[in-house]
Amino acid sequence: MQFKLIINGKTLKGEITLEAVDAAEAEKKFKQYANDNGIDGEWTYDDATKTFTVTE
């Protein structure tokens, strides 16, 4: 399945997509990506659109 991450950071904004088996795997990958890029914020997930959002 394809999942999307919307980044609303203080210095980094944008979207990325990835393939994952389920939402838990996608969340783990997205949070690792955010951590690697210094993004720390409030996370939400919309199951209907398979979209994660992180807002700093």
Rank of each mutant, 00 (worst) to 15 (best):
T49Q: 05
D40N: 15
E27Y: 15
V21T: 09
K29F: 09
T49F: 15
D40A: 15
L12D: 09
K10Y: 03
N8G: 06
T55M: 05
A26C: 03
L18K: 07
A26T: 01
A24I: 06
K10R: 08
K28G: 06
E42I: 09
I39F: 11
V21G: 08
G9Q: 08
K10W: 05
K28Q: 15
N35D: 14
D46R: 03
D46E: 12
E19W: 07
D46L: 05
G38R: 11
Y45P: 00
E42C: 06
K13E: 07
I7Q: 02
A23N: 07
Q32Y: 06
I16C: 04
N37W: 11
F30W: 02
A34S: 07
K31Q: 05
D22K: 03
D47Q: 05
L12Y: 13
T44W: 15
A34R: 01
A20T: 10
F3R: 00
T55H: 08
F52V: 01
A26P: 00
E42D: 11
E25D: 04
A48R: 03
Q32M: 11
L18I: 14
L18Q: 08
I16D: 02
K4D: 08
F3K: 00
M1L: 13
Y45I: 02
T49R: 15
T17P: 04
A20L: 05
F52R: 00
V54R: 00
T49H: 11
V54Y: 02
L5I: 03
L18Y: 11
A26I: 02
A24Y: 08
L12P: 06
F3C: 02
E15F: 13
I6C: 04
T53A: 14
F30R: 00
E27Q: 15
T53S: 15
K10P: 03
D40Q: 09
W43T: 01
F52Q: 00
A26Y: 00
E27T: 14
I7V: 09
E56D: 06
Q2N: 09
I16M: 13
D47A: 08
D40F: 12
T11E: 04
E56N: 10
Q2T: 11
T11G: 09
G38V: 13
E25S: 11
Q2D: 06
W43P: 01
K4W: 14
L18D: 04
K10T: 06
A24H: 11
K31R: 07
T44Q: 13
A20Y: 04
D47F: 08
V21A: 08
G14M: 09
A48S: 09
D22W: 02
M1F: 12
D40K: 14
T44K: 11
K29R: 06
D22R: 03
K10Q: 12
Q32A: 12
I39V: 07
V54W: 02
E19T: 15
K4Y: 06
V21D: 13
A48L: 15
G14Y: 10
T51M: 09
W43I: 04
L12Q: 09
L12N: 08
N35A: 12
A26M: 02
M1D: 08
F30V: 09
I6P: 00
I7R: 01
T11S: 11
G38D: 04
W43G: 00
L12A: 14
D22Q: 07
N8Y: 09
K28C: 04
D47E: 06
T55A: 11
A24S: 08
I7E: 01
I39P: 01
A20S: 07
D40T: 04
T51Y: 04
T11H: 05
I16N: 03
D40I: 05
A23E: 11
T17W: 15
M1V: 12
Y33N: 02
K29H: 13
Y33E: 02
Y45L: 02
E56Y: 14
E42G: 11
I6E: 07
T53H: 11
W43M: 05
V21C: 06
T51Q: 07
I39H: 03
Y45K: 02
E25M: 08
A24D: 08
N35G: 08
E56M: 13
D46S: 09
A20D: 08
N8D: 04
K13N: 15
E56H: 12
V54Q: 01
D22G: 07
E27M: 10
E42Y: 11
D40S: 11
W43K: 00
E15S: 07
Y33V: 12
Q32F: 12
F30S: 03
N35R: 07
G41T: 01
L18M: 09
Q2L: 04
K31E: 05
A24E: 13
E15H: 15
E56C: 04
T49A: 07
T51L: 04
K29C: 04
K4T: 04
D47Y: 09
E56I: 09
F3S: 01
N37D: 03
L5W: 02
K28D: 06
K28R: 09
A48M: 11
K28Y: 15
K31L: 10
T17E: 10
K29E: 04
T44H: 15
D36G: 08
A48G: 10
I6A: 05
L12H: 13
F30M: 09
K31Y: 07
M1R: 06
E42Q: 13
D46Q: 11
A24G: 15
A24Q: 12
F3N: 00
D22A: 04
A48N: 15
T11A: 12
Y45M: 02
E27A: 15
W43N: 00
T55W: 11
E19G: 07
G14E: 05
M1N: 15
K29P: 01
T51C: 05
A34H: 01
T11K: 05
T17F: 14
T53K: 12
D47N: 15
G41P: 01
M1Y: 11
Q32S: 15
L5C: 04
F30N: 00
D46G: 02
Q2K: 10
K28E: 08
I7Y: 07
K28F: 08
N35T: 11
Y45C: 02
K31P: 00
Q32H: 05
D47K: 12
G38C: 05
V54G: 00
I16S: 06
A20G: 06
Y45D: 00
G14V: 12
M1T: 10
